[in-house]
């Protein structure tokens, strides 16, 4: 049913369910009332003939298509993402067909049910909502026939006669208005309120930071952890004697210029060109604290980077530089203490 214009008039007739003639709609059709202008409201579904033919809605087909989409979605989620995230777990293939079957069954059902529901919602909402309030007597069992007709037409008289003949208990006219009924604004506010509450509920998961500083997500990656308080440092990893040859120093200086100087500065004082844009001041490498660190500690910092309170402040160079190269950089940094 289209929107009510100012030139329309709404005719509403109430019938006893037992007295409602099934031929009425057919007669109205013959009187030239278009299908879309008729509406029958009832307290329960009517299955008899002689009713308004509802516009077709291919809900079954939509449900089947949605189910198939859900099936594909399930295969992609359970199978496809497993290929993208190929982590071995004991004895099971990365993409396990029975598992994909189970998951895609559920997503198929989910999609079919939700899409059916949403389509139904859209259809219900697309009904004329600014229509006059429904007669409360419908809920006590009466049937209401609502007709939207062009006002001052001859048809109006004819229709009224037909309705009277059919045994209408009551016939009322109603001039259509274009004003929005007061309930709609309230509707919108209530809906908005419910959405805000739902959104706030989404934020409930708390943000604790337990074990945050050890994000090891690659297999066998070193934990990016700072030693627990009170732990005993171990130097055993430093087996290599530092043979500071000039060659190695030059190589270290070259790598330092390429990889480190933009933050730590060419002279290592932490005044590189990008410092202005950093939140954390890079360390002054000539600082006695830095120079006091063992070669192993410096090597670890270059290898794994540095994190302060869970935030990465220096990147890891494990992937960028080989062990040899990292070593020469450390040798160079050590050499910065000699002025």
């Amino acid at each position: 049913m289209g929107p009510v214009t100012e030139h329309e008039i709404t005719v509403r007739a109430l019938f006893e369910p037992s007295g409602y003639p099934e031929s009425l709609v057919e007669k109205l059709r013959q009187a030239g009332v278009p299908e879309g202008a008729m509406e029958i409201r009832s307290p329960l579904p009517l299955h008899e003939t002689g009713l308004v033919r509802p516009a077709p809605l291919p809900l079954h087909r939509i449900a089947i298509i949605a189910g198939l989409v859900g099936l594909v979605l399930g295969v992609v989620v359970a199978g496809g993402t497993a290929i993208l995230y190929p982590i071995m777990t004991g004895g099971k293939p990365i993409v396990a067909p029975p598992v994909v079957g189970i998951i895609s069954f559920e997503t198929m059902m989910l999609m079919a049910i939700v899409t059916t529901f949403v389509t139904m919602l859209i259809r219900l909402r697309s009904e004329r909502r600014d229509a006059v309030e429904r007669d409360p007597r419908i809920d006590d069992g009466l049937i209401e026939v609502v007709l939207s007709l062009p006002s001052n037409s001859v048809q109006l008289q004819l229709v009224q006669t037909l309705l009277k003949q059919a045994g209408a208990l009551e016939i009322r006219h109603h001039h259509a208005t274009s004003s929005i009924p007061p309930g709609v604004e309230l509707d919108r506010r209530t809906t908005a309120g419910m959405l805000v509450v739902a959104w706030l509920l989404c934020g409930v998961p708390a943000c604790s930071r337990d074990m945050q500083d050890q994000s090891s997500y690659q297999s066998q990656e070193a934990p990016r952890i700072h030693s627990p308080k009170g732990s005993v440092p171990r130097d055993s990893r430093l087996l290599r004697k530092s043979l500071t040859t000039q060659e190695e120093l030059d190589e270290g200086a070259r790598l330092f210029r390429i990889n480190c100087s933009h933050c730590h500065g060419r002279d290592g004082t932490g005044n590189g060109p990008v410092v202005a844009y950093l939140k954390e001041q890079p360390a002054d490498l000539r600082d006695p604290y830095v120079q006091g660190l063992s070669e192993a500690a410096l090597y670890d910092t270059v290898t794994y980077g540095l994190a302060v309170e869970g935030r990465d402040v220096m990147p890891a160079f494990q992937g960028e530089l080989s062990a040899e190269e990292r070593h020469s950089v450390v040798t160079y940094v050590k050499s910065l203490s000699q002025p």
Binding site: I87, M88, G90, G91, K92, D210, S215, S216, S219, Q220
Partner: peptide
Amino acid sequence: DAPCEPVCPVYASYHTPEGLNAQVYN
């Protein structure tokens, strides 16, 4: 073919390429 690995819903328990049955605590 560790029975503990595939049942973990968050991949905390998984198999490393070197045959270790690893547990990722976080």
